[in-house]
């Protein structure tokens, strides 16, 4: 059987009005054959995880340019574990310093992307993760 279609949620948590990056990535994932639930701006971590449960997504992608990445990624991850989504990928992008990325990786958060990263790199990363985490 062919690989099942990968389902992703793309959301922007918190007070951060810059959604072009999120839209570009969402569009790229759609063109790569994924089903992307787009939640849009100013989401709370609770709302994002609530939607992720109902949509039963494989991947949650957060876009954060506000500087609040440490708080939001950790909170979303905590809620995912609590709601039974511990086996899904939490990834994302924004302006996230390397040392913060390392700390978030320790907390179980996937690779994070930033300016200059190629869209294909993101697509490949999600596909590889999905292939190595069948459920």
């Amino acid at each position: 059987m062919a690989d099942p279609i990968i389902k992703v949620i793309i959301a922007k948590p918190g007070l951060d009005g810059h959604d072009r990056g999120a839209k570009v990535v969402a569009r790229a994932l759609v063109e790569a054959g994924m089903e992307v639930v787009y939640l849009g701006l100013r989401q709370t971590p609770e709302a994002i995880v609530h939607a992720a449960v109902e949509e039963d997504v494989d991947v949650i992608g957060l876009s954060i340019l506000s500087g609040a990445h440490m708080t939001h990624f950790r909170k979303v991850k905590e809620l995912m574990d609590k709601e039974g989504l511990g086996d899904r990928l939490l990834t994302g992008g924004g302006i996230i310093p390397t040392k913060d990325q390392a700390k978030l990786a320790e907390a179980g958060i996937g690779r994070l992307f930033g300016p200059g990263d190629d869209l294909q790199t993101i697509i490949d990363y999600i596909r590889d993760w999905h292939r190595s985490h069948p459920r």
Binding site: I5, A26, R27, L29, V30, E31, A32, G33, M34, E35, V36, V37, Y38, L39, G40, A51
Partner: peptide
């Protein structure tokens, strides 16, 4: 692929 935007 599909862009599912109704939740917005």
């Amino acid at each position: 692929g599909a862009f599912l935007g109704d939740r917005v």
